[in-house]
Every structure is written in C-alpha cells, then in structure tokens.
Design a protein around this nucleic acid. Structure first.
Lengths: 226, 226
DNA sequence: ACCTGAACACCGTTCAAGT
DNA sequence: ACCTGAACACCGTTCAAGT
C-alpha cells in the first residue's frame, strides 16, 4: 500500500530479470519469505506466472538473485582504505547486520548454496582483512571461516526472530517476553539461562553482535602470537 | 528400505506422538527436508493425513519435535564432569557437529524459533562451561552467545552442503569441485578465495570446526585477562 | 522472442463422518 | 477419544497457444 509510489511503473514496461528480482525483493521485505509466490509476483508485474519463467529458471534462482542483489551492494559499500583491518571487519559485519535487519529473509538465504556468489563476496572481504591483520597463511582460512560462520549464525538467528518487531516498542516487548520466559525455566536444568535472563532485558543486538566479533578478533590475535 | 528392521511394527500399534515423531525423523534422514510430507508420513504410519493432526498441531510443531528429539540426547550425552571446560565445550560442539552430519535437516531447524527448547539446551550447556572458565559475569552472555552463534553458523552451512556426500568419495569429489571452481574465480576480485582454494582440497571439516571453537575460546581467555 | 493463462501434480490443513 | 479420507485452498511449474 505505502509502497505504491515506487517509481512510475506506468504499465507496458517490458518484463526483465532485473524488474522481476526488484519486485521479488519488495514482496520479500513486505510479506516475508512465505509471501513470495509466483502468482503474487506475477500480479505485481501485471502478467501471468508463466512469463516469469522466461527470465528466471525457478524459485531457487529467484531467491538467490534477490539475495545477491541486496548483498552485493552491502559488501562493496564501505571500502574506505584508511581503516584498520579490525575496523573494516567490524564495519562489514555491521553493514551485513543492518541489511539483515532490513531484509530478514536474507538471514536464511545466505546460508544456502555456499560457494555461491553472495557468501563468497563476504568471505573474500573477510579474508583480505584477515590477511592484512598479519595472520600466517596457514591460519587465514580458519580465521576467515570462523568470522563468516559467526556472522551467518547471527544472521540466521535474526531472521528467525524477525516477527513483528518493526517498531522499537515491539522489540522491547519481545525481549521482555523472552526474558520473562527464561526467568521461569527450571532452576536446576537452566541455571545459567535464568541468570542470563536479567542481562537480556536491556540488551542491544548490535552491540552484542560486535562484542562477538571482537571476541573472535581477540582470539585471532592471541593465536597469532604463539 | 534398509530401515525396515526398525522394531517389530506389526500393524495395529496405536498411533502416538512418539511414533509420529520417530517416523518423521526417519523420513527426514532418508528423504531430506523436502521429502517430509503429511501424505508420505501417513502412508508410512498406515493411516490418513488427518490422523496425524490429532497428535500434532501442524508441520512446524512436527519439525520442532523432531529436532528436539535428536538434540536432547546429544546435549545430555557426554556430561563427564572430569573434563576441563574447554574440553567440554569442544566435546559438545563435536557431538552437535556429528549429529548434524547424520541429520542434516537439523542444521536449518536449529536456528528457527530461538528461545525454544533445543537451542536453549545448547546455550545452557555452553553457558555453564563459560562460567566454569572463570569468565566475569558481565561477559558470560557474550561468550556463550558467540560460541552458540558460531556453532549455528557451521550447522547451517553443513545442512546446505548436504547433498549426496554420504560416502567419503562424494565428499572428496565435492571438495575438489568447489576447490576447482574457486581457483577459476576472477584473480582481482577474489584474490584471497583463490588462494584459499588450495588449502580446501585436503580439508577436514571437523578439524576446521574445532579450530574455530578454539579461536573463540582463545578470544574469551584473552578478553578475560584485561 | 516473448508473453498468456489454463492445467498438472502436488502441498498443508480441515472436517464431516465413522468407530 | 481417536481415526478416516475426501475436499479446500493453495503451491511451483509446464506448455500449448497466442503476438
């Protein structure tokens, strides 16, 4: 509804892979992963479902292209050469984190089909910074992988959490609910989690995410000086 | 086929939540996430699709119960109190890693619905070891989360990779294919990844996974001594 | 070359009807 | 209380037919 003022989109504009992917991203952002359907997509593009198959081989490729479309811009976005490697890694992480916040479906999609374009871009970028960190060659792969896997884990988590927390209000409510649920767990079986419930209430996901990155960076630094 | 010698399973055995979940796990292991259907499941249980809904609210709950069923045993499995916290964390990680190797669908399922039972068990276990490590209280949540997110990232990755690598042969072929593909990437855009392709060929996922865990543990230790 | 839209083979889920 | 299985409202995908 609010997204009607998108471009001009008169009609008659010819179908193209680009337009299809763009429309798919719009639907994914609005209606979530389950909302993207060839029928809805076709309606949005004022055509029939079959037409889409002329430009795209199927739903998997469509989801891949949508992910690629969003991630490509993110990774290249902030290549300011002046930062330290640590800062560059944190910056890339944050950009990805924010992108997943804006497009939660990416969180699930990123993990699929590894060795594929979007994830490879992230891996490459992380690897370069790891190398710049002075990590010995034999340890570079492990370090870059650890960072990537951590980021993918958080991404999946954020995608799963994305329900109706568009507003800060819902977000706080959500944290309160989880925190309360955790505090009611069995004291013997879940001693640690119950304790953690307190810290959860005033908890900033972004800060927590960065703290995890820093932990891995500290581990990389510590392992290098052996 | 090979799983026919499962129990006795004469017939007439009454339907139960337990039997349904068990059958679902069997189908998931054999046919993958896409192979689990209420119709196949009903056929396997010699009943109609509707009968399943009497014991289980829907597909989401079924998948959750299947995940819970597999993970619960894993986490509790090796609670030998004699090990150091580091060893306990590595052991839990390895058990999860192997479980995901055996039931790849868990990798995707674990991330869903956080604050839910299976993931919470893992988090609790990790948290206790982190505490035993002597990490100050304010840093415990971050440390346990980092470990969990890393594990979830690897889990998702393994789930995505699980195609037809049951045998070692296929696994090696797969690594060779990826390695070859990476070596053909654009030298400018993917300098690091191309270089990493070499190391990938004789690469042990389990070893690599543990190396990542150790990196985070090193980071936790380094951060503690500030 | 590109689009249309009916049709196919599926889904998850429901529900009247049975026992 | 528990099971049956036809039926509903969807899917992704195909394909003859159009332009």
């Amino acid at each position: 509804m609010a997204t009607r003022t998108r471009r001009a989109e008169r009609r008659e504009e010819p179908l193209s892979r680009e337009r299809i992917v763009e429309a798919a991203i719009g639907i994914l952002d609005t209606a979530g992963e389950g909302g993207l359907t060839f029928r809805v997509l076709a309606e949005r593009l004022a055509t029939g479902p079959g037409a889409i198959y002329w430009h795209v081989s199927g739903k998997d490729e469509l989801l891949g292209a949508a992910t690629e479309g969003v991630v490509a811009g993110i990774v290249l976005g902030g290549a300011c050469a002046s930062a330290t490697p640590q800062e560059a890694i944190r910056a890339l992480g944050l950009r990805l984190f924010d992108a997943i916040d804006a497009h939660p479906w990416i969180g699930n999609q990123l993990s699929r089909s590894p060795g594929q374009s979007p994830m490879l871009r992230v891996f490459e970028h992380l690897g370069r910074q790891v190398r710049a960190l002075g990590v010995p060659r034999a340890a570079q792969f492990t370090a870059a992988s650890a960072l990537l896997n951590y980021i993918l884990g958080v991404a999946g988590q954020n995608a799963a959490n994305a329900h109706g927390q568009e507003s800060e209000r819902n977000r706080t409510e959500f944290l309160d609910t989880v925190s309360a649920a955790w505090a009611n767990l069995d004291p013997d079986e879940y001693a640690f989690t119950r304790d953690a419930a307190e810290q959860l209430r005033d908890h900033d996901d972004r800060v927590e995410f960065l703290a995890g990155i820093d932990l891995i960076l500290a581990g990389i630094a510590a392992s290098a000086s052996d």
